[in-house]
Structure formats: C-alpha cells, structure tokens
C-alpha cells in the first residue's frame, strides 16, 4: 500500500498547502510518493525530496504542464495510479478541480475535503459548511481523497533524501486551452483565503475608525472582515461580511475587534486556528471562543497593538 500525492506548485516553489497535505497523506501510509507535474520545476522537485515524509518524487516535465489544466494532468496521474492504493491532494481549487476527474476514470467515489485520517479507509470530513462532521468509510479498492490543508500541520521541509525519478509525459488535451492567470491585484489578501483576518464590529462606531484596523491589516498582510452589525451600520461594504450570511473564513489567525460575537458571526469564523478577541465588554460571547481575549477599549488597544507590532523584528507574511 502506497500513497501518491499530487503536488501543487508554480514551477518555482511548492504551494504551502501541499506541505499540509503531505502530513495528512503520510498518516494514511508512510510510503508516500509525490507526483510533480510541471515544466522546468527541478527546484520544486529538489525541495520536495528534502521533505522527510516524502519517500519518492516522480517528476513529469513538459511545457504543456507549465500551466495547470485538469485535462492534461489527469492522464499522467492515471498512468501512475496503477501502483498506489490512495491518490491524494489538497482540497483547494487545484485539487478540487483535478481529483474528481481522476476518480471518475478510476471508478472511485471520491472522499472530499477530509480533516482527519482515522484509518486508511476511514476519514472525518465536514458537511453542511462545517455544521456537521461525518465519519466516512470508503469501500473502493483505490481511494481518491482531497485534504483540507488548514486541518493539518505543514510537513517539515528539510532533512529528507527522497530520490527523484522522471516519468513519461502525455499528449496535450486538444479541447482546453489556458489563456491567462490574473493574480489578485489588491495588495491585501482575499478574505476567503487570507492567513490572517482582522475584523471590526459595531464597536468601531464609524467607518472612519476602520482606519485603525486597516493600519494593522497592512502591517500583518491581513484581510479585513466585518460583522453584519458593522455592515448594516454602513461602516464597511458587505463584501467584507464574515458570518452565516457572509463569508466563512478559516485563517490561522482571526482578530475580532469590537465584535460581541453573535452566533451568526461565530458561524463564519469559529474554525479559525487562533482567535483573538478585543472587546471592552468582558461578558461578550466572543470571549467564549477566543484563544486570547483582551478586555480593553479598542480605541486604546488598537494603536498600542500596532506599536507593539512595529517593535517586532520579523513578522510572518
């Protein structure tokens, strides 16, 4: 039994999600091989070989893999799949697009977006936008699994010595053509995928006061969120709304400022890894989900927070 993980990368470096997926994949089975499909991606192959959890790197190189198209990737994966019990990749837009195409051709019912490996055939996965967890057992001989990256630690990136082997390429798909990719222009990360989100609520008292939040977001390279109360009050536009009727976010760090923590808001952020609450009402429900709570007037706390951040030598981006 061996696991084949399909790496996501940009031909220069591994996407961090792949490292999280590697951790999950090696929990399924230690004999983990990584399939790297790309063009001129030797650097990526090398860094993958240094990941201790990876036992072998299979590199497929051709200019047709410069950009990622599921139609081009699928036959390559299918060819390799023969030797593996599990085909896995991360459940971001890359893996979500690719894996079902592979699964259907292997006649396998895919297990999407797992958050825990219970055994080689049994997994935990969220359903109903995380409002319920299902324990599911796959009966297919060959299993196709996608992995929610935020539920697993990133694998270590040094110390490994996996061999790198080359494998065959395949014909390019005729019916699909890559045209262009536009990275999001704004300097600020997207709310849905940002590593850090800082949100303001009704406690901000005005739209102008959101400047205090913007300053910190700039410093932390964070996305800006808001509670429905703040949106309703007109402090900020509704594309910033986090919650049941807004966006659901799962960042590494969520900072809730002047947000009382109505359950509708909690529904949109309670899966975040670390939650910080800054609120002057010590009884606010937000504190019941916060890892770190600071009971303070936000108009004093936020400038101070920025000041402290400025004192730090390094900030993770």
């Amino acid at each position: 039994m061996s696991v084949l993980l399909i790496a996501e990368h940009n031909n220069k470096e591994i996407k961090s999600f792949t490292l999280n997926a590697i951790t999950a994949a090696s929990q399924i089975d230690e004999d983990l091989h990584v399939l790297l499909i790309g063009h001129n991606a030797d650097e990526v192959a090398k860094s993958l070989s240094l990941v201790p959890n990876v036992k072998k790197v299979i590199q497929v190189d051709n200019e047709i893999y410069e950009n990622y198209l599921a139609e081009n990737f699928t036959p390559v994966v299918l060819k390799q799949a023969e030797n593996y019990s599990h085909i896995v990749c991360s459940a971001n837009t890359f893996g979500k697009n690719l894996m079902p195409r592979i699964a259907a051709l292997l006649d396998t019912s895919q297990v999407s977006d797992i958050i825990k490996v219970i055994s080689a055939d049994t997994f935990l996965r969220p359903i109903y936008a995380g409002n319920a967890f299902a324990t599911v057992k796959s009966s297919d001989a060959k299993k196709c699994v996608t992995i929610r990256p935020t539920s697993f630690e990133a694998a270590q990136t040094s110390g490994g010595t996996a061999e790198i082997i080359k494998a065959d390429t395949h014909e390019a798909a005729k019916n699909t053509k890559f045209i262009k990719k536009e990275e999001v222009k704004s300097d600020r990360p997207e709310l849905g995928t940002a590593r850090i989100v800082i949100s303001g609520g009704r406690g901000m008292q005005s739209g102008e006061n959101f400047k205090l939040i913007t300053d910190i977001a700039d410093k932390l390279n964070a996305a800006i969120g808001a509670s429905r109360a703040a949106v309703d009050a007109g402090y900020i536009t509704n594309d910033h709304q986090v919650g049941q009727t807004g966006k659901v976010v799962v960042p590494d760090l969520y900072i809730a400022v002047g947000i009382s923590g109505a359950i509708q808001h909690l529904a949109g952020m309670k899966e975040s890894k670390i939650i910080v609450a800054i609120n002057k009402d010590g009884e606010a429900p937000i504190f019941s989900v916060a890892d770190y709570g600071l009971e303070a007037d936000l108009f004093e706390a936020l400038p101070k927070f920025l000041e402290e951040l400025n004192k730090l030598n390094t900030i993770q981006k």
């Binding site: 509704n238 049941q244 009727t245 109505a262 359950i263 509708q264 529904a267 429900p285």
Partner: peptide, 17 residues
C-alpha cells in the same frame, strides 16, 4: 439564551440590500 442565538434557530433572513 440571548436573542441572537435564538434568532439563529429561526432560520430568518431577508435578502440584503
């Protein structure tokens, strides 16, 4: 319970805007 967790159970919403 408080009012917000209660209204949550009603499934209430009105289209934005």
């Amino acid at each position: 319970f408080d009012k917000t967790s209660s209204v949550y159970l009603t499934g209430t919403n009105h289209a934005d805007n």
